[in-house]
Design a protein around this nucleic acid. Sequence first.
DNA 1: TCGCGCTGTTCGTCAAACCGAACGAGCGTC
DNA 2: GACGCTCGTTCGGTTTGACGAACAGCGCGA
Lengths: 189, 189
Amino acid sequence: MDSRPAGEPGLIAVIAASLRRERERAGLSLSELAKRAGVAKSTLSQIESGAGNPGVETLWALATALGVPFSRLVDPPRPATRVLRAGEGPAAHSEVAGYTAALLASCPPNARRDLYRVTARPGEPRLSAPHPPGTVEHVVLASGRALAGPAEEPVELRPGDYVTYPGDVPHIFDALAPDTSALFVMEHV
Amino acid sequence: MDSRPAGEPGLIAVIAASLRRERERAGLSLSELAKRAGVAKSTLSQIESGAGNPGVETLWALATALGVPFSRLVDPPRPATRVLRAGEGPAAHSEVAGYTAALLASCPPNARRDLYRVTARPGEPRLSAPHPPGTVEHVVLASGRALAGPAEEPVELRPGDYVTYPGDVPHIFDALAPDTSALFVMEHV
DNA sequence: TCGCGCTGTTCGTCAAACCGAACGAGCGTC
DNA sequence: GACGCTCGTTCGGTTTGACGAACAGCGCGA
């Protein structure tokens, strides 16, 4: 009855893995999570060991206790991370006169991408500590000028420029002009 | 993350509603869906009536039989058009002087988000036919001025403005000023 | 009117999910 | 070494979800 794409790890196996992964990422012990979620630790133990077919309420309780969206537990673990760099926009989509669309980055399946709008003033470079492994950041500069990218080799951006780089190393965003704003896309596991 | 808002409709109520909604949208009878999903129709009946706490495998079978992502059953309704003006938005993250980051949209799991940079000239409104159901578009205007959104009720954007709207209805992007550029995020499930 | 096919419901049985307690393993402290 | 703590696993008992069958309601054709 597992209608997952054939040959793939069964649904419960995925849940088991995701659950353990998220729990460890949250730094919680099995007992602790069980207590917070209000489920018996025996239950949690069995689920994580891949035994049985948990009820949605149980899973929901665990998901919220973990602070992750429900479906992160049922979605298969994520494939390899891929970083693209696109300076001038590779593939053009629509080419109606006066209208051009450049594909900057195609989203790898099962990644989460969150959008942020960022405004910054010069003289306050923002150095970010590394995010969890697999994190990728995308930046499109809307206005002003900025230095963005990995701390070791940042890139100067002008309006419209796009850069993407791994987020699991120290990185920087430094406005070079007043009124600098950018769109951030945080892509993480 | 989505801990459900405290005045919650209750998880199973949501599932019940979503299930019935999706089933009717697919034009399937309860019996038919039950047969396709390989679950007893009695089970399905009870779930749709909000009784009990279905197992994940059961739900999964139903979701795939319906051809909808799992999360559509557990996550509440559809996003409508939403506008965040430049400077608005939950200034969530860092608040180092001169640096603000606003979370525009958190990515639903298992969704793909592709990035496009778009430049357009006035006088060439671009009307898009509906994309597949579940598609959502996000637009951040980088420069110029534009009218964007559902064809019936587009929104005027100025630099930094953000709008998101369902992509499965006709929608439009109409530059109102020369040198108009925007970042497009196409999100499809 | 009767019968057929379909709808979605309810009922009794069985398997299993959930729970609580008890268990052995690993650490740090007195 | 013995204690105290927390770790995760395993073991009966109770609750409950899933199943199949029997059920009533509705539309349609003979």
